[in-house]
Design a binder for these strands. Structure first.
Length: 484
RNA sequence: GACCCUAUGGUCUAGCGGUUAGGACACCACCCUUUCACGGUGGGAGCCCGGGUUCGAUUCCCGGUAGGGUCGCCA
């Protein structure tokens, strides 16, 4: 029988990065074995459930590329789904729960509490002996009763308002949906004893269990909602590439064991299996994710192109889209600039940054005329002796004719002789020669004058994209700032 | 408090009875370069502690310590 696995999140309004990895491992196992990956929404706690909260989960999984074979198609609990074991929202399965609850009651495995603090609830008669759990990741675990359970091992499976509780519905669903392998976070390991007892009471063998270690913060503390990076939404918004996030998640708690770091998902699908999952928790290392993201980003957009060279790689529309949204997100008025200019500007940034969130700081100078000079650099570069040098450079640039339409059009150009990177470089080199200085002597003050920063895209290409008008104005302004 | 899981550089990991303990991120230095980034080269940094078992333990066993998890009318 082919494995049937499920990811069963509760719609809390966000998708935890650890939950995303649980989904990934389930998905990987299903794809590796040719089994079925099921998405089930555990929305029994009606109070805080909403369609939006479910959408967060669906969108997150879709963004990661984890497609499910059975489960809801929309965030609407009463809406359409696919698969023949539905409904896939627990809120829609009351009938099923009532039937199974009845089975337990009539079989003498559960009873309604008549008095005391638990009055009105239904409790499951839990066994008093230790439960043996055969875990595919952890191995054999003998779960003994805790001191409190020693007093009363029975646990509530239906609240006094009639709503069945997690342990019960979880088991009923897994049973009714023919789940063969339960792959979930290790936080459920202790609870598994209850689940196994429940399966036993229903007279069926429990599924195989595989408890995967948790993801902790970089300092080793538990990762909760508040911690940066805990929510998958963050990665979507910060402009991470899904393939980088997936790749990183694969490497947390699992290893290809051949020193490989960057792996396409289909290769992971081939190699992945449950027994080789690590047994210890992993700390989340944002720096490594960022490095991976940079790798993928560069792989996708590595060609440095400008208006004057060949057209940008064809399938990189999303590079512009992601770039524009990153800029817009922090209030950069990109809409005031022609698309061709924006694209040309973004092209000069290709391969230079690791996440799109770095872009605004990196390329902001393209979209504002208020250049604020890096104070330390200004002290170093805007010195009296550099003033005549920068003036010389300005004069050299002045001799180069502007492109038609200049700064606003971005693509129109003069035949070979305009304000282009190659010509600008030649002019600068010539000036340095005349001055008898090294290129850096002119490059640094020029870059600072035009961008306000000490680092950024290729100077010549950036000047070309900016256009003669802006370049000259910015150099003038810088000169005015310098004392002779 | 009880119960469960875990323990290789700062982080992710390979190794699991005899290895110069391997790789990656991060860090430092140098090279490349118009800056930055990329790419090179080199470097510092590790088997949690204590007992066993063994000719020999990072590797096996026990204890401790530390971290994490669970014991809910949350999931």
């Amino acid at each position: 029988m082919k494995p049937r696995v499920r990811f069963a999140p509760s719609p809390t309004g966000y998708l935890h990065i650890g939950g995303a990895r649980t989904a990934l491992f389930n998905w990987l196992y299903a794809r590796h074995t040719g089994g079925t990956f099921i998405l089930r929404i555990e929305d029994t706690d009606a109070a805080r459930n909403s369609q939006e909260a479910v959408d967060v989960i669906l969108n997150g999984l879709r963004w990661l590329g984890l497609d499910w074979d059975e489960g809801p198609l929309t965030g609407d609990a009463t809406g359409p789904g696919k698969g023949s074991f539905g409904p896939y929202f627990q809120s829609q399965r009351t009938r099923i729960y009532m039937d199974y609850m009845q089975k337990l009651l009539s079989g003498g495995h559960a009873y309604e509490v008549q008095e005391g603090k638990d009055e009105g609830t239904i409790k499951f008669k839990m066994q008093r002996e230790p439960v043996v759990i055969q875990d595919l990741v952890v191995g054999e675990v003998v779960r003994k009763l805790t001191d409190r359970e020693e007093v009363d091992p029975d646990f509530i499976i239906r609240r006094n308002d009639g709503v069945p509780v997690f342990h019960f519905v979880n088991v009923v669903d897994d049973l009714q949906m023919n789940i063969t392998h339960v792959i979930r976070g290790e936080d459920h390991l202790s609870n598994t004893a209850k689940h196994i007892a429940l399966f036993k009471a229903f007279g069926v063998p429990p599924p195989h269990y595989a408890h995967i270690p948790l993801i902790l913060n970089n300092d080793g503390s538990k990762m909760s909602k508040r911690d940066f990076g805990a929510s998958l939404t963050t990665y979507i918004e910060e402009g991470f590439l899904p393939e980088a996030v997936i790749n990183y998640l694969c490497l947390l708690g699992w290893s290809p064991k051949n020193n490989r770091e960057i792996m396409p998902l289909n290769e992971v699908v081939e190699l992945f299996d449950l027994p080789q999952i690590l047994r210890h928790n992993a700390r989340f290392d944002m720096a490594k994710l960022i490095w991976l993201n940079g790798k993928y980003l560069r792989e996708r957009t590595t060609t440095t192109t400008t208006t004057t060279t060949k057209p940008p790689p064809p399938d990189n529309e999303d590079f512009y889209l992601l770039g524009i949204s990153a800029l817009t997100r922090v209030g950069t008025p990109v809409e005031k600039f022609p698309l061709a200019y924006i694209r040309a500007a973004l092209d000069t940034c290709r391969g230079k940054f690791k996440t799109f969130s770095e872009l605004p700081a990196y390329a902001g100078f393209y979209f504002t005329d208020k250049i604020e000079y890096d104070a330390e650099a200004a002290k170093k570069d805007f010195v009296p002796e550099n003033k005549p040098r920068l003036e010389k450079l300005r004069d050299a640039f002045a001799k180069i004719p502007a492109r038609l339409g200049d700064s606003s059009s971005g693509i129109t150009e003069l035949e070979g002789g305009g304000f282009l990177a190659a010509n600008l470089e030649a002019a600068l080199k010539e000036t340095t020669k005349a001055l008898g200085v090294k290129a850096g002597v002119l490059v640094h003050p020029c870059r600072l004058a035009v961008t306000g920063k000490t680092s950024g895209p290729s100077l010549y290409h950036l000047l070309e994209v900016l256009g003669k008008e802006k370049v000259m104005a910015r150099i003038e302004k810088a000169l005015a700032n310098m004392t002779s």
